[in-house]
């Protein structure tokens, strides 16, 4: 991509495109230019994807100043950045988004699980309990031989019952 005078305004046009501020003719003109210039085409695609990522970020979960900074990035342009803006700008956005995500994750941890994840968690938990119960069935005969079959009867069904009674015995 060269730095012709027309291309120096692409950044603003890309921002305007993302914000829905270009009219039909201006948008067509930008897309036509993108068809002729693969670097511009790539920059537009990159901007669109990053715009989606930024839009999904929970700004309330990160420091206010960082959220403000992220919102401002698509607007900030200095004269000396314009020469190589397409790579620098969106690369900077991506790096900033990454930092923001790191801070967000470290501050608030993973987000609220979906109903499907909760249902899967319940199935996983049930499977874990099933394996606990199987371990119990293996240990029950040993318990019976050690402490007597009559006493072991109430604890033979589940490992936790075995553990519970053993725990009480240990405590006593």
């Amino acid at each position: 991509m060269n730095n012709s005078p027309d291309k120096s305004s692409w950044e603003e046009k890309i921002n305007a495109l993302l914000d829905g501020e270009l009219n039909e003719e201006q948008a067509k003109s930008l897309w036509a230019a993108a068809e002729r210039d693969s670097a511009l085409d790539g920059a537009i695609n990159e901007a669109v994807e990053l715009h989606r990522v930024v839009a999904k970020l929970q700004f309330n979960d990160m420091p206010r100043s960082l959220g403000r900074k992220l919102r401002q990035i698509p607007r900030q342009t200095s004269a000396h950045e314009r020469s190589g803006f397409l790579q620098l700008r969106w690369g900077m956005v991506a790096a900033t988004v990454l930092v923001a995500l790191m801070i967000t994750v470290s501050q608030v941890g993973p987000g609220e699980p979906s109903e499907a994840e909760i249902a899967q968690g319940r199935r996983d938990f049930n499977l874990t309990l099933t394996y606990l119960a199987r371990a119990s069935s293996r240990t029950s005969s040993q318990i019976a031989s050690n402490i007597g079959r009559g006493f072991s009867a109430p604890v033979t069904r589940h490992t936790v019952r075995v553990i519970s009674d053993q725990f009480k015995l240990n405590r006593e």
Binding site: F125, N126, T128, L129, T130, Y131, L132, A133, R134, A135, S136, S137, H158, V160, R161, I163, S164, F167
Partner: peptide, 27 residues
């Protein structure tokens, strides 16, 4: 099989939950 349950565990409570989760010994 290696199982690790982490946290405050009340054994009798766990037993009750196993009953209610309808845990089967056979997989």
């Amino acid at each position: 099989v290696f199982i690790n349950i982490i946290g405050m565990i009340d054994p009798s409570q766990l037993a009750e939950v196993m009953e209610q989760f309808d845990v089967a010994v056979d997989l």
